[in-house]
Design a binder for these strands. Structure first.
Length: 851
DNA sequence: ATTTTGACGCT
DNA sequence: AGCGTCAAA
């Protein structure tokens, strides 16, 4: 059996704001607001009835003391507002200002760093959720505790220890008094076809709830099926932990699995403390034998509590859970299943389902509103077994294997492993707003692109990987004359989400320098597209959308830019190779575009000092000559692209064809293209289309930064923006320098990796620095020059990257990660992994700062 | 006027 | 490749 943990930050965004603003989550009512609505609510506010999704002004009425904190915003020109004044209710929002969750992503990284420091098997499930596999630690702890118990000559004897364990939580008294300690007894409760899961105690089959009380009743019962540990950092908790450990070791009536889970509870309690110590955030957790149960358990007792579900109680707990609460069944699929199953006229079990629900407290099956939730137990009772599963499949018209999977899930038997991963798999920036014309779309996309580029740079610094695909999402909008032009039933077509993807423009090198308050400087090179390149490429995708599907692109209500297919920039060459192979041919040529990834050949940039815009906004005024290596690579790609058959379709060569295709697909009202040549009109309506750069046959490409002439005199052509002006300068190296940075020639020791500066382009330059780092694979521990931290030598480069990334983050967003609070040196509060000397070699993926 | 994210499965 | 669904703050 494994010990699986689901970790869940309590009202995460609210906690982040509490920490930032010095609010007390136990006293102050706090909510996080995005435009007019609340997206996170702390527990004090919840007690006043404030709920997620609620309009802020309503919440204020419920809870006059409520502190609503608006999320950060980003506007045109990359203007970040850290504490925006929330818009007045009913006010029109600026379509060029987007909400940004950057602050929470940063906090999330802190949390995951802390988790990873204490557990090798951490899987990121969302910005604030993780699955952990703590089997090994739990087993070790158990063994230790048992050895200690044996040494102490303590003969087991008493089961009281277990009782102590859950006597902690006052609400538990009822649940703990009875049989629950008898984890061993649970077989009985598990087997009983008893929806209550009351188990052994006198046949409680007929345990009846009063109408409307079922929900509470379920909660109550669920608590009885688990053990709750309060993680307040007080003596009680410590005692608790010890008694739990002792109980795990000593209680003879516990099965081995129960002991192991109890030990897991101790491990998790420690991890939660560590997270709180490192970040200040409280965490809830569920501990069970598999992910499904752990996830349900973590939600059982919040905030700041952990819930253990012993194997012996697992089945009973699952039975009591409304099946819509099981992951995957909360949406349409779940409700469809529930509806199919509950139709009482049906055969094959429907009547039984209704019967079950009546027993659950449904007094009037006609009053659908009053229906108690269908529990997993109901499903198991009616559709359990091979036979039942077949009926289930038939009744719901789903394949048998799907039905089998459902039944497994509701039985709490999901055995999926925890797959270690700390990194997001894609980066996206989106904005919902009514965008009526092409100029608006363009400006909005520029804002999105700025953010995306910043995050791509950050991602490369943190994880050494690079996005190779750009996806543009689009949601249409209704316009008045559309209502007349489109059939009523078809209007939803107009608001459909659609998307197109293409290769991410390769972009230019950007050298990032950062220094901390001690005057230490570090430098890294990343390669990200410019915002302008992204915008151009994205516009190509919108044209592609316009020319297929027969739907207008304008107006629209939502645009998203998404960077996906993040490829590792691996030194090992396997993934590096594949990265280049994934590039259009020509980029792996002698120009050195390839090797420059790792060991950039560049001269000292002539740089424009200082500004943030200098880094993220675009190129330096004057590209240094050597940067043309990059420029070459870029050009090469363009050339190569020209040779490639138009796999991407409508973009270029397929234009005319696509145009006619679009026209053919277009339903009745779509106007035929005005001219045989490519006529990708965004709006489908003449007055709103965009035709920039269409005149030449190649104007409609998929972007990739081609230097398209602007302002062709078309009425709706967008004037070049500043952004473009900068981009136009192309492939410069841009540098962020801090004020007191030493003069150019200074070479830092921390800088070794990018510093060697081999002048020869295309030199095999297999990163000398890297080599030195990796040659010492067996060289044991090394100390970081920045912080003195000891670690395996091969981890050093990665660790230094981390410093750079943190410096950068601090530079751009001072105090964003709470550094002031915990890291007086000025570095971010995110701490690198703590290395212990005896640490066993770890697989790469498990190491947090390893990509 | 629920927005902004992210993952994954189906075809 | 593109679409749809699910989920979380």
């Amino acid at each position: 059996m494994r010990v699986i943990v689901h970790v869940d930050l309590d009202c995460f965004y609210a906690q982040v704001e509490q920490r930032r603003l010095g609010l007390d989550g136990d006293v102050d009512a706090v909510a996080v607001q995005q435009w007019s609505n609340l997206i996170a609510v702390n527990y004090v506010a919840r007690r006043h009835g404030v709920k997620r999704g609620m309009p802020a002004h309503e919440a204020q009425k419920l809870c006059p003391g409520l502190r609503c904190v608006h999320v950060e915003t980003i506007g045109e020109g990359g203007v970040v507002v850290e504490d925006p004044t929330p818009p007045a209710p009913g006010a029109t929002r600026d379509p060029m200002v987007k909400a940004s969750l950057r602050r929470y992503r940063g906090a999330s990284r802190e949390v995951f760093a802390a988790l990873a420091a204490h557990c090798d098997l951490v899987e990121r499930a969302s910005i604030d959720e993780a699955f952990l596999d703590v089997t090994a630690q739990s087993a070790a702890l158990l063994k230790e505790a048992q050895a200690a118990a044996a040494a102490a000559g303590r003969s087991a004897g008493h089961g009281d220890g277990v009782g102590e364990v859950h006597s902690n939580d006052g609400r538990e008294e009822e649940g703990t008094g009875g049989h629950e300690d008898g984890a061993g007894v649970a077989g009985a409760s598990g087997d009983a076809p008893d929806p209550d899961g009351e188990g052994v105690a006198a046949g409680q089959q007929q345990h009846q709830c009063k109408p409307k009380d079922y929900r509470r009743e379920l909660d109550f019962r669920t608590q009885r099926h688990s053990q709750v540990v309060d993680a307040e950092h007080d003596a009680t908790a410590t005692e608790l932990s010890q008694s739990q450990e002792a109980a795990a070791a000593a209680a003879p009536e516990l099965t081995e699995s129960a002991r192991l889970l109890l030990a897991g509870g101790v491990v998790v309690d420690r991890i939660r403390r560590a997270v709180r110590e490192a970040t200040g955030f409280t965490v809830s957790a569920g501990i069970a034998a598999n992910r499904v149960v752990a996830k349900l358990a973590s939600a059982r007792n919040k905030p700041n509590k952990q819930t253990i579900v012993p194997l012996s109680l697992q089945s009973a707990m699952m039975r009591s859970i409304p099946f819509r609460e099981v992951r995957g069944f909360g949406g349409k699929y779940g409700s469809a299943l529930e509806a199919a199953l509950s139709a009482k006229d049906g055969d094959g079990g429907g009547a039984d389902v209704v019967t079950r629900r009546v027993r659950n407290g449904w007094h009037d099956p006609k009053a659908a509103d009053d229906a108690p939730p269908l529990t997993c137990g109901d499903l198991l009772d009616v559709f359990g077994g091979t036979d039942g599963t077949k009926r289930f499949a038939q009744r719901c018209s789903i394949p048998l294997d799907a039905a089998t999977a459902v039944m497994r899930s509701v039985a709490g038997e999901g055995m999926d492993e925890v797959k270690p991963n700390l990194k997001p798999k894609s980066l996206s920036a989106c904005k919902s707003a009514y965008l009526g014309d092409a100029a608006m779309v363009r400006r909005c996309m520029a804002v999105l692109a700025e953010e995306l580029v910043e995050r791509m740079a950050e991602d490369e610094l943190l994880w050494r990987r690079r996005a190779t695909t750009l996806v543009v999402h689009h949601r249409g909008a209704l316009k008045k004359d559309h209502l007349s032009k489109w059939k009523a039933g078809k209007t939803s077509e107009l608001t459909r989400d659609r998307n197109r993807q293409c290769r991410m423009p390769l972009g230019a090198e950007a050298t990032v320098e950062a220094s901390n308050s001690q005057g230490e400087t570090a430098r890294k090179t990343v390669r990200v597209p410019t915002p302008g390149q992204i915008v151009e490429t994205a516009e190509g995708m919108l044209r592609k959308l316009a020319s297929s599907g027969g739907l207008p692109v304008l107006p629209c209500t939502r645009i998203a830019l998404c960077a996906t297919d993040l490829q590792d920039l691996e030194t090992g060459s396997a993934s590096l190779t594949s990265f280049f192979q994934a590039q259009p041919k020509g980029s792996v040529n002698s120009s050195g575009g390839g090797t420059s990834l790792r060991s950039p050949q560049r001269k000292r940039p002539k740089r424009k000092r200082g500004t943030l815009e200098g880094f993220f906004g675009g190129a330096a005024k004057k590209p240094a000559p050597t940067t043309e290596v990059v420029g070459e690579a870029h050009t090469t790609i363009e050339d190569a692209k020209a040779e490639i058959p138009r796999a991407e379709g409508e973009g270029q060569g397929a234009g005319p064809l696509a145009g006619s295709f679009g026209a053919a697909v277009t339903e009745e009202p779509a106007p035929a293209p005005a001219s045989p040549q490519r006529n990708e009109m965004w709006g489908g309506d003449e007055e709103t289309d965009i035709r920039s750069a269409e005149r030449e046959g190649d104007g409609v490409g998929d972007g990739h930064g081609e230097e398209v002439e602007e302002g062709q005199g078309q009425d709706n052509v967008i004037a070049p923006s500043e952004l473009e002006d900068k981009d136009r300068q192309g492939q410069g190296v841009y540098v962020l320098v801090v004020e007191d940075e030493p003069p150019d020639p200074v070479v830092d020791s921390t800088d070794a990796e990018v510093e060697p500066e081999p002048e020869a382009a295309g030199a095999p330059a297999q990163a000398p620095a890297e080599a030195t780092a990796t040659t010492s694979l067996d060289g044991g521990m090394k100390a970081c020059p920045r912080c003195g931290q000891e670690m395996p030598a091969e981890e050093l480069p990665e660790h230094e990257d981390w410093h750079v990334a943190m410096d950068l983050q601090e530079r751009f967003h001072p105090g964003s990660s709470g550094s002031a609070r915990r890291a007086p040196g000025g570095l971010s509060g995110i701490q690198p992994r703590q290395w212990s000397k005896q640490r066993a070699p770890q697989s790469k993926i498990q190491s947090f700062f390893k990509r």
